[in-house]
């Protein structure tokens, strides 16, 4: 992603931050790798509010992935506090975390992670299935969301019949479909060519302006620059937390 892809930088909108969504204080995470103990996070504190567009950056080994897993409620901290929308998720059971992920978090993965044998529509319906929505309601909502990301015409195509950019749009629709509190994107343009990457980042910009809260995890400055706030990690600690310029 070499040349800066965002001419929008100059006249972009910044929405006023809303209520506190994520409140992390003094979070640590230890891994045991055989006899060795790895301190992936050494005491991280972070507040993320509604309507924020945040980038989390850091070189590999900085604890970036661990923090993302924690924010996404895929993992729980070894120690520290994690409040999500006022609920303490630090000590939740697997199934409670699954419900939080289902309702509150929309994941966008670097490798899209679509079910290969299912249509775009069926893929987008998936979170609604886990939410227990009846078939007709979820079909309607999934179709509407696909339409919103510009894939209304390709709903019944399977992933291998779609381009990379289209696949990532399906994945974004899937993340949006349950109206989550945050969208959590992990290197969302990592598997895309730069032109498509620009399109996807433009979509994120639009989603942000529509009122979504977005967290992008990346190691690319060009991608991070799209966000309004950049958090940098190094060695399991927050190195800096500042508005994007």
């Amino acid at each position: 992603m070499s040349p800066s892809p965002v001419p929008a930088n100059t006249h972009r909108v910044t929405r006023p931050p809303g209520a506190l969504v994520i409140d992390i204080a003094g979070v640590t995470k230890l891994y045991k790798m055989g006899a060795e103990i790895i301190h992936a996070l050494r005491g991280v504190s972070l507040e993320i509010r509604r309507n924020e567009y945040l980038a989390i950056m850091g070189p590999s080994g900085s604890g970036k992935s661990t923090l993302m897993n924690m924010l996404g409620c895929l993992d729980t901290p070894t120690d520290g506090r994690y409040m999500f929308n006022g609920k303490n998720v630090a000590h939740m059971e697997d199934d409670e975390l699954a419900d939080i992920r289902n309702r509150e978090i929309g994941f966008v993965f670097q490798t899209f992670n679509l079910l290969p044998r299912s249509t775009a529509l069926a893929n987008v319906e998936l979170p609604l299935i886990y939410a227990g929505l009846p078939a007709h309601a979820r079909r309607e909502r999934a179709a509407q969301t696909l339409h919103d990301v510009g894939l209304g015409e390709r709903m019944l195509h399977k992933p291998n019949e779609l381009s990379g950019g289209q696949r990532q749009r399906v994945a974004i629709a899937r993340a949006l479909v349950n109206s989550p509190s945050i969208i959590l994107a992990d290197e969302p343009t990592g598997n895309l060519d730069s032109k498509t990457g620009v399109e996807i980042m433009a979509l994120f910009e639009q989603l942000y302006e529509d009122g979504n809260t977005i967290i992008v995890v990346t190691h690319e400055e060009d991608i991070a620059r799209h966000a309004r706030r950049i958090v940098r990690l190094r060695d399991g600690l927050i190195e800096s937390d500042a508005p994007a310029v």
């Binding site: 895929l74 199934d95 699954a98 309702r103 993965f109 992670n113 079910l115 886990y130 899937r174």
Partner: peptide
């Protein structure tokens, strides 16, 4: 395995 991970990320419980 990866599909299971994805399904869990999207909110599938253990029982599911």
């Amino acid at each position: 395995t990866k599909e299971i991970g994805t399904r869990k990320a999207l909110g599938a419980r253990r029982r599911t």
